[in-house]
Design a protein around this nucleic acid. Structure first.
Ligand SMILES: [Mn+2]
Ligand SMILES: [Mn+2]
Ligand SMILES: [Mn+2]
Ligand SMILES: [Mn+2]
Lengths: 222, 222
DNA sequence: AATTATTTTTAGACTTATCTAAATTTATTT
DNA sequence: AAATAAATTTAGATAAGTCTAAAAATAATT
């Protein structure tokens, strides 16, 4: 169908486009793909000829419907495989991305669907990113950063923005784990540190930490 | 490490070399890979320069130790993934080869080992082919009696249960010898006699005879 | 508005892997 | 042993994807 290179471009353009709904410029793509701008231009022309994106020279690119749907399929595979690696093979959160970068290009529709079913139709990957369903829709609500919650709000820890080892160890010491319930008790104005209440204790976390905790709002639960 | 193309060549050369312990010739490789002889020559030079095989122009190739060990790793991955697809995702045994052809090129040592462990360290893939262990050793070739083979199955005559003179003479008259390829064409319900096809002819053998022929199963696929 | 800086595209080259067609070597027949 | 056939290699071409260096277009400053 599509080459790995094509799929990587589409995926990166998709994620860049999601941040702000504007045409994505060449240099950004190059940077994300660790390649050169001239290479990006070449590929852009190719993808444009295949009608996977629209392209005005010098004006950046935007994915077409088809392009977006391909990108979503790659993203779905990436995240399902990450879930598989962590949940079934017991890899750590921070070890799976590289491998998923390869697995996301395996071509077989039935494989993806059977894998999805085998894993129990998961909604989020190990980093808290939503997994598109077969039709390309994200079922669950978006996860928000804990630092964007307000006093009194409650939610469930569903993912991490930072999956580094230091951070994982920090959470370990605080006895925090995915699916923990968290309530924002207080926010300190001076340094934006947050007093949170988990199932077992109440303690302060820094803004730095709050920023990296991804929460599913309690109200979204149903 | 090595490109997919390189890995595919090494794998095919390995399996061809296993059949008879002679240098593998260009046309055979080309046929197995559905490519042209000239392409094979090009790749052979490349692999030879990398010391993955030894090559005398016009005289065929033989894998070096390194080349063989790479081929074994690819084969191990191929068969482990096939096992995964059948055992965990409930694919049928004839649906998995294409997908395993892709999965066998995923690079990650820890992935292979964790997968192996997750699957329960299986010894044979869904087609009965042995899965090399981490060190590249097969646990042992499983020989089965010809009378346990099914219609359409193929294999190689590797041993005899009965080594009496009468039996050997019988085989001699039928021009059957170790390492002969044998295919089960038909099985007569009435007396369980078996119509087999050797490299040269097709003829019936009794159940008595079938019972005493030890076969190494051979699937078309890897 | 003119100049400078940044971004993007073009031109030309390189690598990998493939092909066709022709040349060469090896094997098989006569 | 010569002629013919088959297998293998070489020569030259192509496509995908990348790169560097230079040119062109756009954006930001003076
Ligand atoms: Mn990832
Ligand atoms: Mn992820
Ligand atoms: Mn196979
Ligand atoms: Mn197999």
């Amino acid at each position: 169908m599509y080459t790995q290179a094509e799929e990587n471009y589409l995926k990166v353009i998709f994620t860049l486009q999601k941040v702000k709904e504007e045409p994505v410029n060449t240099n950004l793509i190059a940077e994300k793909l660790s390649t050169k701008a001239s290479s990006v231009t070449d590929m852009i022309k190719k993808l444009s000829a295949k009608k996977l994106l629209s392209y005005q020279p010098y004006q950046g690119v935007m994915l077409t419907k088809t392009g977006r749907s391909i990108a979503l399929k790659v993203l779905r595979k990436h995240r399902l495989w990450e879930f598989f690696l962590v949940d079934k093979l017991h890899f750590k959160w921070d070890e799976v991305h590289e491998i998923a970068e390869q697995l996301e290009h395996i071509q077989s529709d039935s494989l993806v669907d059977k894998l999805d079913y085998f894993l129990g139709l998961p909604k989020y990957d190990p980093h808290g990113d939503p997994i598109p369903d077969k039709a390309g829709n994200f079922t669950g609500e978006e996860l928000i950063s804990l630092k964007d919650m307000e006093i009194g709000e409650r939610g469930i820890l569903k993912g991490l923005k930072d999956s580094s080892n230091v951070f994982l160890k920090y959470l370990d010491r605080k006895n925090m784990v995915i699916d923990d319930q968290i309530e924002v008790v207080e926010i300190e104005n001076f340094d934006r540190s947050v007093l949170i209440k988990t199932n077992w204790e109440t303690f302060y976390i820094s803004e730095q930490v709050a920023k990296n905790l991804l929460i599913k709002r309690k109200s979204d639960e149903l």
